[in-house]
Amino acid sequence: MRGAASLLAAVLLAGCAGSGTFSGSATVAQLEQRLGAPAMRWTAADGSETLAYPEGPPGYRTWFVRSDADGRVIARDNVLVAAQFAKIRPQMSEEEVLRLLGPPVPQWTTYFEARDELVWEWRYCDDWNEPARFDVMFDGRTRRVRSTYAASEDLRGLNGFGDFRGWCSH
C-alpha cells in the first residue's frame, strides 16, 4: 500500500500546476489504471466525480481527486487538514463526514456500548508537522455527529518518547 501511495503522489504531483489544479489531460481512467480503484467515489449531478485515495492503512493523508463531467482530472487535495476538520458539525450524518474526510482507519473504528457512541479516527499531520489523530464521535442510535477531538499522537501517549516530526515531512 505504501508503494501505491508513493505512486499516487508522484502521478498527482507530476501533473500538478500550483493551486491544486492539473495541467495536461490526465483522466480518471488513467489514474485508476495506475493506482487501482479508489477507496470511495462520489458522482455529482453534473457528472463530475470525487475519488478518495487514502495513504494507508494508517497514513497521514487522504487525497481527493476531482474530475469534470468528461472524466478529466481537474484537482487533487489532501483533505486531512485542520480547515477540513473545522467543517464537521454536530448532527452531520456519517455520509456527510465521509464526503469531507474520506474513510477512517478501519482498525481504529470503535463502538463504546456504555456511551452508545461510535468513534471514527483518522491520522494526519498537524500544523506543527507532528503525527496527530482526529476523531469524530457519533451517537450510536442516530449515527449523527456528537463531537470531534484532535490531538497529537505525542499528547495521546501513542509515540512513546522521541521526536516524530520527521514522519510528516515525507
Results as ranks from 00 to 15, higher is better:
G3R: 09
A4Q: 14
S6V: 14
L8N: 13
A9P: 04
A9Y: 02
V11C: 02
L12R: 00
L13Q: 07
A14W: 03
A14S: 06
A14D: 13
G15P: 12
G18M: 10
G18D: 14
G18K: 13
G18L: 13
G18H: 11
S19D: 15
S19P: 15
G20V: 07
G20Q: 12
T21I: 13
F22S: 11
S23E: 06
S25C: 11
S25K: 12
S25V: 05
T27E: 06
T27D: 00
V28H: 02
V28E: 07
A29I: 01
L35E: 04
G36Y: 07
A37I: 07
A37F: 03
R41P: 04
R41I: 09
W42K: 10
T43E: 15
A45S: 05
D46H: 03
G47H: 03
S48L: 00
S48K: 07
E49V: 09
Y53C: 12
Y53E: 01
P54S: 00
P54M: 05
E55Q: 13
G56W: 04
P57C: 06
P58T: 06
G59T: 01
R61D: 03
T62H: 07
W63K: 08
F64Y: 13
D68E: 09
A69F: 04
A69I: 08
D70A: 14
D70R: 04
G71R: 06
R72N: 07
R72Q: 11
R72M: 07
I74T: 13
I74F: 09
A75Q: 14
A75L: 04
A75S: 15
N78K: 06
L80V: 05
L80F: 11
V81W: 10
V81L: 12
V81M: 11
A83I: 02
A83S: 05
Q84C: 12
Q84H: 14
A86S: 00
A86L: 05
K87P: 01
K87V: 01
R89H: 12
R89E: 12
P90L: 10
P90W: 08
P90R: 09
Q91H: 15
V97K: 00
L98K: 02
P104A: 01
V105L: 08
V105A: 09
P106C: 03
P106L: 10
Q107V: 15
W108P: 04
W108G: 00
W108Q: 14
T109L: 09
T109S: 02
T110E: 14
Y111S: 09
F112M: 00
F112L: 05
E113D: 11
R115H: 10
L118D: 09
V119W: 08
V119D: 10
W120A: 06
W120Y: 12
E121T: 15
Y124E: 06
Y124H: 14
C125R: 00
D127R: 13
W128A: 15
N129L: 15
E130T: 10
E130G: 12
F134P: 08
M137G: 07
R141H: 04
R141P: 04
T142H: 03
R143W: 02
V145R: 07
T148Q: 02
Y149V: 03
Y149S: 13
Y149R: 03
E153V: 14
G157P: 03
L158T: 08
D163I: 06
F164Q: 01
F164N: 08
R165V: 07
R165Y: 09
C168R: 08
S169D: 04
